[in-house]
């Protein structure tokens, strides 16, 4: 069974648990959680991930900054990134995708929709 490593970056424990709960349905999934962008960068430096799922509004370092830093880092720039956020306006979506995110999912999330996006990215790898 192939192993899939996910990094879930969320300041809300409720959302971290809900996203992890959904990702556990993917066979071979291994989930690492981070509280914010800085925490995520620390974890990226020690582990390899197949997909990063990040919120935008977080303390210390927000999700957009994280996307930008990952895309400018030669070691991690190809990791697919999914933004999951309450910012659902079209301009927010465009901004997130322009920074290099692969998908943009507005909250509240439907687990089936999230899994469709994640499986689509895993299938294309």
């Amino acid at each position: 069974m192939p192993e899939h490593n996910f990094l879930v970056v969320e300041d809300s424990p409720t959302m971290r648990q809900l996203i992890s709960f959904a990702l556990k349905r993917i066979p071979g999934s291994k989930i690492v959680e981070a509280n914010d962008g800085i925490d995520a960068l620390k974890k990226l430096s020690t582990q390899k991930f197949d997909i990063i799922l990040t919120d935008i509004n977080m303390p210390i370092m927000d999700g957009l900054k994280l996307v930008s830093m990952v895309r400018n880092d030669p070691a991690h720039k190809t990791i697919p990134i999914i933004i999951i956020t309450t910012e659902g306006a079209e301009e927010d979506r465009k901004r997130g995708l322009a920074l290099g995110a692969n998908a943009y999912i507005p909250k509240p999330i439907q687990t089936a929709d999230l899994l469709t996006v994640v499986n689509g990215i895993l299938g294309n790898k």
Binding site: S12, P13, T14, M15, Q17, L18, F21, T86, K107, P108
Partner: peptide
């Protein structure tokens, strides 16, 4: 499940309030 789990995960009043805010914002929208 997640909402219920989180609600009963603490005995700190302010943390309980924060969790309710998270649920209403993230899960209800």
């Amino acid at each position: 499940y997640v909402a219920s789990y989180q609600l009963h995960s603490t005995l700190d009043f302010n943390e309980s309030l924060k969790i309710i805010l998270e649920i209403v914002m993230n899960l209800i929208g």
